[in-house]
């Protein structure tokens, strides 16, 4: 039982990272029905940007006191802004022209952009895993027989907070309303005076910024990064978005946590080498039996 609870915590923290990435997938899919394949790589880019900012700040280890808040705030915001801009640039370069093309076309450019980003990161830091400074003091809190680390609490709390903020933004602001309108019917939204291009760019900005936050968090959490991390993480986060119901923000988070748990429990009760197979089997099975996901509404084939 102790091990089970401990793995629950491991799974939830892993899931928190997937959830942050999944929010970006689900937003973009919700508005332009594109699987933004490059999103996982924007997340990895988030760890690279964070690392660059930390290096600029001269941070190489654990920071304490008031400086910690400044360092974390500056790094997270910096990574979010840079990733957000990357997302906007990717959309402008690779997707906007193809908005009315057959669905295959932007999906293929998305794969292309993913390869391009991965290789740019390969040039940036080389092919080996890169150490990432610990930054945050990591005391472990004992709860009965299980322990929770400060880092794990940070991941879970940040995922929930950002999801709630996003939810409020999308449902209670004018810009959020514009996004929802664009998602429902681009032409009608345009007739209502909504600037479609700006709204879609905004969606990419926010989704990619969340990936940037996830990047910082995962760098701190694992203490390392690698140029190809985004592929597997992105695919799992996409699985999370589909599991929760694509287009649904709360669903993306729920899916993220479920996928994280699936992975941890597979490792504990079956074997680590099967965890990817199990997660991707979940993806295939959900798409076959419940393509709308747990919290999603049915999406009719557009005529």
């Amino acid at each position: 039982m102790d091990v089970f609870l401990q793995q629950l915590i491991n799974g939830l923290s892993l899931g928190g990272i997937y959830a942050l990435i999944a929010l970006g997938y689900t937003m973009v899919y919700g508005i332009i029905e594109l699987i933004n394949f490059a999103h996982g790589d924007v997340y990895t880019l988030g760890t690279f940007f964070s690392l660059a900012i930390l290096t600029l700040l001269g941070v190489t280890g654990i920071v304490t006191g008031p400086a910690l808040i400044v360092v974390v705030a500056v790094t997270i915001l910096g990574a979010m802004i840079l990733c957000g801009l990357t997302g906007v640039i990717v959309e402008r370069l690779a997707y906007r022209r193809l908005r009315n093309a057959p669905k295959l076309a932007p999906l293929i450019t998305a794969i292309g952009m993913s390869f391009i980003l991965e290789n740019l990161m390969l040039y940036w830091h080389g092919p080996s895993p890169i150490p990432f400074p610990a930054v945050i003091p990591n005391p472990a809190v004992g709860l009965g027989s299980v322990t929770i680390q400060a880092k794990q609490i940070m991941v879970i709390v940040l995922a929930v907070v950002l999801m709630v903020v996003l939810q409020v933004f999308v449902y209670n602001t004018k810009l959020g309303k514009a996004m929802r309108a664009t998602a429902q019917d681009k032409d009608a939204a345009q007739l209502m005076g909504i600037n479609i291009n700006t709204t879609i760019a905004l969606t990419f900005l926010i989704g990619s910024a969340l990936a940037g936050a996830a990047g910082f968090v995962s760098g701190v959490y694992y203490g390392s990064t690698w140029f190809l991390n985004g592929f597997a993480a992105g695919l799992k986060a996409f699985t999370a978005a589909v599991l929760g119901g694509i287009g649904n923000l709360a669903g993306a988070m729920l899916g993220g946590f479920l996928i994280g748990l699936t992975e941890a429990m597979t490792t504990q009760f079956i074997s680590d080498q099967w965890s990817n197979v199990v997660v991707f089997s979940v993806l295939v099975l959900v798409l076959i039996f419940r393509p709308t996901g747990l919290l999603g509404e049915s999406l009719p084939n557009k005529v």
Binding site: K103, V242, W274, V277, V284, P291
Partner: peptide
């Protein structure tokens, strides 16, 4: 899977493409 929409199908096949080599390895 073939009744799925095009982009979902792409992702299912991608998942399948990850499952098969890992299974052979395991």
């Amino acid at each position: 899977t073939l009744r799925l929409r095009g982009d979902y199908l792409a992702i299912v096949t991608l998942g399948f493409g990850e499952i098969v080599p890992q299974t052979f390895l395991n």
